[in-house]
Amino acid sequence: MKTSPLSRLLLLLTALLAAWQVAIGIEGLERVPVLAYTVGFGILLVACLLLIILGLEVLESPVVVIVSTVIPLSLSLGLVWEHLTSWRTAYLTFVLAGFLAILVTRALPFKGRLPVIVLAVVHGISGMVIFLLPSVLAAQGTTRAGFALVGLGGALIGLGGLLLSFLKAGRPILPRETILRILPALLLLMTATFVAGFMLA
């Protein structure tokens, strides 16, 4: 499927938003959240540039599973480090162990459902953190209401992850062409809600 000019434009806008977030949107935070958000948005930026260069077919590469896990892991680490100080060490351990587990189960020829279970657990927990933590904090009034947009971004990242995972598993929820057509818009919406949420926090 050829990548349309509109898809390229949406990906370019996503890349620019991610670049803005890395350069300006996370100024003044502590070192670990800055590093975590830089990794998350940085991967998003480079991924969008590669999607523009190579087309959406590149999503079929096995590396995508590993790379796409780093985004929710790093973003959730940044959020936990900022807002759940007593969970910092535990969550950092989970992030490192989770990433390692995905790396190992994807790199080595594991039989059975272990690779899928590991992926679901790591993706699921980090996705829930991104969705729930900002939503709860905003609802409690601990942060400004706009921070809930980060939670919305978390929901969108989860949706994108689900669509891609089922597609790669051979049981697509939607037709492949439809998924590839809506993905750039989904990525842009996700990044825009993240950027707006952090700005309004």
Partner: peptide, 10 residues
């Protein structure tokens, strides 16, 4: 610093 971060990412 922010632009250096961006350069590092690229």
């Amino acid at each position: 610093a922010g632009f250096l971060r961006l350069m590092a990412v690229l």
